[in-house]
Write a protein that binds this DNA or RNA. Sequence first.
DNA 1: CTGTTTTTACTGGTCGGCCCAGCTTTTGCG
DNA 2: CGCAAAAGCTGGGCCGACCAGTAAAAACAG
Lengths: 235, 235
Amino acid sequence: MQIGVIEVPTRRALLVQRIEDQILTGKLRVGDSLPSERQLQEETHISKTVIHAALAELEQKGFLEITPRRGAVVANYVETGTMEALAARIRLNGGSMTREQTRSFLEARVAIEGAAFRRLAERHTEEDLAYLEAILAGADALLAREPLDARALAEALFRFHRGICLRSGNEFFPLLLNEFRPIILEFWQRSIAVFGAASNVHLAKRCLELIRAGDAEGAFRRLERSVNEYLGSLD
Amino acid sequence: MQIGVIEVPTRRALLVQRIEDQILTGKLRVGDSLPSERQLQEETHISKTVIHAALAELEQKGFLEITPRRGAVVANYVETGTMEALAARIRLNGGSMTREQTRSFLEARVAIEGAAFRRLAERHTEEDLAYLEAILAGADALLAREPLDARALAEALFRFHRGICLRSGNEFFPLLLNEFRPIILEFWQRSIAVFGAASNVHLAKRCLELIRAGDAEGAFRRLERSVNEYLGSLD
DNA sequence: CTGTTTTTACTGGTCGGCCCAGCTTTTGCG
DNA sequence: CGCAAAAGCTGGGCCGACCAGTAAAAACAG
């Protein structure tokens, strides 16, 4: 048996997580007031500096709404939340989404990646293709190794799809995929578990071929089909 | 003559901005190490606590990668960056995007909002429409008042479009729009300046009508057309 | 001179306290 | 009783010291 590295989390990170959990599990509801910073300081034995930093972080993530000299209330994360807020909620549910969330997520992914596919199919250089091929070569290397590192392969698939966005020439697409990152990684890990590692890598290669051939619609349909297959596998 | 309020920027905000600029202008390159917190303290005459907070903020934005007891290095913000990193880059260019950035941005917006339009046109309740109408009524009220508060109207238009995403039933769309928020606000303010306030509100109303009529494609084309007009106005 | 242990200098993380400005509640005077 | 002054909160910003680790330098043994 092997004991890996033990990462010591910072107090700030622990406090952020604690409050996130309270919000996401419904113990703290939208509109509820948080205790004052000084009160939290007493409860947690953490200094006001760190408390303040943690609350500021939660505000930026969209979980809280802080008004100077009035206090912090739990925000409606749908109104103000970022992708991070959603990722946190998914993390809490044991890393799994409801079926409806999954459908929403895939719909959004198809909207973004579909646009990237189209652009790249229409206009790409040899360098673009070489870049994407290099990523897939890395995935192949992972495939050959035993035991399979599903996490690493999921990362590679993520990099491939972000690579498509990156090379599409649209500055926003890769950033959007970065926002999705934690969710997409969960997705690929599940996809690897359900459809197998080789199948997923093969699908990526097929998409690249279609892009190379300039078949924008074909690439888009291939993407759509795999998404539907994934959704079907949930039943 | 009238002298308005004088906002005193905080040291922390100034430091954040300074470092952001250094990164975005290339004086600090990806992979470069930052001076230690203590070194920065000496250079800037700002306390280490504030330095620490500023660096933490830059990390959350995706500009830095901080490892405890090892230091901070400039992160590849294309890899890890969020929409905020891009917003910062735009802010640096005097709040305006290049033509290519604008095109990218609108392409992404059409991809996301287009999907939301389609969903909402196909499936909406009376409550959804009432919700959106209420937002437009607020925009009308702003329109009647003199002088025009362009910022507030831009906010209203943002809320309307986010409302469409919200009511589309896709949990991700509104979150994506939230990520775009700072950029979208710049967009609407410019659009108001170029096409006039009334015209923008009228367009929103027209979109709502098409959604009500269930004309998904019509609504989508209307959106696409206005985007193209905006792009055309840049020449 | 080499390989190993110990020391030291340096890192980010945390602490508690200071003052500030503004909102809320209590107090106290006319 | 009415109303204004005061006291007591809030978060925001900042400071200098201390903590627990790391990595390089110094000391040491062979």
